[in-house]
Design a protein around this nucleic acid. Structure first.
Lengths: 168, 168
DNA sequence: CCAATTTGATATGCTTTATAACGATTATAG
DNA sequence: CTATAATCGTTATAAAGCATATCAAATTGG
């Protein structure tokens, strides 16, 4: 049987599914709303979904964007350093870099100091893409969040999440 | 739940650099710390990790716990209703219910009204397990979070995440 | 020099998430 | 009523995400 792969031309790969309003009576959520993990996961999915939507013209996932951003601020680092900082395991980072390198957004160069390691560098196209991406994130993605929460809450939320991410 | 007190949130003390301990020099996180999606994902992973640790004696994942909790508050519902409410796709819900049913935590009964559907019900063991689970979550998991953030911040965080999960 | 370690890479497996399709059953149109 | 469509649980399947073991090449340390 052939794989029915509807490969259209330049359509965004993943369009998040629209949620349809369920026609049955709303269920009692119980203590679920008080469960931080549940709300965290739901919120994270929504935020990533919106990120992908905003970033559709550049076809960058949140993880890919974070790599470009980190490379821009940390030139001359190798794969292990970048991957560890982002919480990505080295084996899984390889394919990710393959994709970005094949799109000419970054380069792998053997380090002259340590020829085991690859120095990662943003290409010109990578830098330009990152600039466009940051603009999209700021004006479309984060702006919408700030509008929803208010600037003070937005800052407070970032602070609390950072605390959880590092101290919990 | 009310979010009316979101304006008087205690500001988190500070936002130190994320992660530590690798032997190479700390990398510059750049605008990454300001990216809500990034912090959300990191925080969510940590919270789920702690949830699993606290729930180890009962061997319940966050998703399984949410199913038991929802069943307890919504008796007589079928698989589609429970799955939809939790954002689980029906095909993926089958194996999940198989596992819980094989552990005698819930039962599937053909509905007399509509013999296509299965009415889901907590067993006695399921109810007892849920009671123990809720106690573990409250005393070990959420308590630690509240201690870390402070009660006011904890409430505010829940409120903001709920807003994002619903309205974003 | 030799043993141990590190780096990028490959292979592999597990879990999660998503879609298509099927039999049984129910609902609906004509 | 009958014929068609829709729904429910289920199976099969595939793509991602996440994790471990292992390898060759290169480096480090004794």
């Amino acid at each position: 049987m052939t794989v029915s792969k509807m490969s259209d031309i330049d359509q965004p790969k993943r369009v998040p599914p629209m949620e349809a309003a369920p026609e049955y009576a709303a269920l009692q959520m119980g203590e679920l709303s008080e469960l931080l993990g549940y709300s965290l996961k739901r919120a994270q999915l929504k935020v990533f979904e919106d990120f992908l939507r905003c970033m559709a013209p550049l076809q960058l996932t949140p993880a890919q964007f974070s790599v470009l951003l980190l490379l821009d601020h940390n030139p001359g680092r190798n794969q292990t350093e970048i991957a560890n900082t982002l919480g990505i395991l080295r084996p899984n980072f390889v394919a990710m870099l393959d994709a970005l390198e094949s799109r000419d957004l970054l380069t792998r160069m053997r380090s002259p100091n340590d020829r085991r390691s690859h120095v990662l560098t943003l290409t010109d196209k990578g830098g330009a893409t990152l600039t466009r991406a940051k603009k999209l994130v700021a004006t479309k993605h984060e702006a919408r969040l700030i509008e929803l929460l208010g600037p003070a809450n937005h800052v407070a939320l970032l602070g609390m999440l950072a605390i959880i991410a590092q101290d919990f």
